[in-house]
Computed example of a mutant assay.
Amino acid sequence: MKQSEMIKQLSDQELKKSLLLTQLSLLILAISISIVVFDRLSDWLLQIRWNSEEIFYYGVIPGIIIILFNILLYLVVPKKYLNDGGINKRLFTSMSPIEILYFTLLIAIAEEALFRGVLQYTVGYIIASLIFAFVHIRYLKKPVLFLSVVLVSFYLGYIYKLTGNLLTVMTAHFLVDFLLGLFIHYKGEVYVYE
């Protein structure tokens, strides 16, 4: 069954619940692997540092760059190449702005905790970035979407490699998903990397 057909069979609440369970599973996986990989939880927590200048330069500015990249894609690439099967449109048009805030915050925390804070820390930048891209399986048959996810994944991985600070990549990831989620909510278009 095609993804778009499966989506039509789910209610808005079931779709949100699925997203919530997926992200909570990623967060639990990140915590579980961290318990094995790190000697102490405090070692893992060293990757989370509040440094407003670093968060601005390596979180906010890259987030804005990724958003501008998405806007450029939206303006120059035919819409059929940016269609993810309707999941993002369905999710974000059914959410209130406050739900978008909470969901995209959870997505940024869960995905970056796992892919940068655990996987990149243990298996390296390239492998973690590729795993992040391939986890977004629904983009595999959409070359433009998949390539953009790969580029964003390597960009976020590089930011983490430079800073070693999960708050920078969580900030960038959150800004991208939240602002593009709001765009979808109000315009019904574009995609995000959740």
Rank of each mutant, 00 (worst) to 15 (best):
K79R: 15
Y81F: 14
L82G: 07
L82N: 00
L82H: 04
L82T: 08
D84E: 05
G86A: 00
K89E: 11
R90H: 02
R90K: 15
T93A: 03
S94V: 00
M95C: 12
S96M: 02
P97Y: 12
I98G: 10
E99A: 12
E99W: 07
E99P: 09
L101G: 09
L101W: 07
L106Q: 01
I107K: 00
A108L: 08
I109H: 03
E111Q: 14
E111I: 13
E111G: 10
E112C: 08
F115Q: 07
L119K: 11
Q120D: 08
A128M: 06
A133E: 00
V135D: 04
I137H: 04
Y139C: 01
K141T: 09
P143C: 08
S148D: 15
V149Y: 05
L151I: 15
L151H: 10
F154G: 02
L156K: 06
I159M: 05
I159E: 03
K161S: 11
T163V: 03
G164F: 03
L166A: 11
L167N: 09
T168G: 05
T171H: 04
H173T: 04
F174P: 01
D177W: 11
L179D: 10
F183L: 13
I184P: 05
H185R: 15
Y186H: 14
G188W: 01
V190T: 12
E194Y: 08
E194T: 13
